[in-house]
Measured scan of single mutants.
Amino acid sequence: AQFIESYVCRMCSRGDEDDKLLLCDGCDDNYHIFCLLPPLPEIPKGVWRCPKCVM
């Protein structure tokens, strides 16, 4: 059997509050909206890229 790795935030390495986890459309990394600098108030609509992919 294969275990699917749960999504974890690249900043805090936690997978809780998954309703606040953002998936980068560039590299598929995950980030909590409140772990980003600056934090986001809510999940953005449409395409989102993490700080690494925006640079």
Rank of each mutant, 00 (worst) to 15 (best):
A1M: 14
A1R: 02
A1C: 03
A1T: 02
Q2G: 04
Q2I: 15
Q2D: 14
Q2E: 06
F3K: 12
F3D: 04
F3M: 14
I4W: 05
I4S: 11
E5H: 06
E5T: 10
E5G: 09
E5R: 13
S6R: 12
S6F: 08
S6L: 06
S6T: 14
S6W: 04
S6I: 04
S6P: 10
Y7P: 10
Y7F: 08
Y7V: 09
V8Q: 09
V8R: 10
V8H: 09
C9T: 02
C9Y: 00
C9E: 02
C9P: 00
C9R: 01
C9V: 01
R10A: 08
R10H: 15
M11R: 13
C12V: 00
C12S: 01
C12E: 01
C12N: 02
S13C: 07
S13V: 09
S13W: 06
R14T: 08
G15N: 06
D16I: 14
D16G: 14
D16E: 10
D16F: 15
D16M: 14
E17N: 15
E17R: 14
E17D: 13
E17M: 09
E17H: 06
D18S: 13
D18F: 14
D18H: 15
D18Q: 15
D18V: 13
D19G: 13
D19E: 10
D19M: 06
D19Y: 05
D19R: 11
K20D: 01
K20E: 09
K20N: 05
L21D: 01
L21N: 04
L21I: 11
L21Y: 05
L21E: 03
L22T: 13
L22W: 01
L22N: 04
L22H: 02
L22G: 00
L22S: 03
L22F: 03
L23W: 06
L23Q: 10
D25F: 04
D25P: 04
D25C: 06
C27T: 02
D28V: 03
D28N: 13
D28W: 06
D29G: 10
N30C: 12
N30R: 13
N30F: 10
Y31I: 06
Y31G: 01
Y31D: 01
Y31F: 08
H32C: 02
H32A: 02
I33K: 04
F34P: 05
F34H: 09
F34L: 08
F34V: 10
C35I: 00
C35D: 02
C35H: 06
L36M: 05
L36G: 02
L37M: 13
L37W: 15
P38D: 05
P38R: 09
P38V: 10
P39M: 05
P39W: 02
P41C: 07
P41I: 09
E42R: 10
I43G: 05
I43M: 14
I43L: 14
K45P: 11
K45R: 10
K45G: 12
K45S: 06
K45T: 12
K45Y: 03
G46K: 04
G46T: 06
G46W: 04
V47E: 08
V47T: 09
V47R: 13
W48N: 01
W48M: 02
R49V: 06
R49P: 00
C50P: 00
C50G: 00
C50F: 04
P51D: 12
P51M: 10
P51G: 03
P51V: 08
P51C: 04
P51N: 11
K52I: 12
C53G: 01
C53D: 01
V54A: 08
V54S: 06
V54P: 04
M55A: 11
M55V: 12
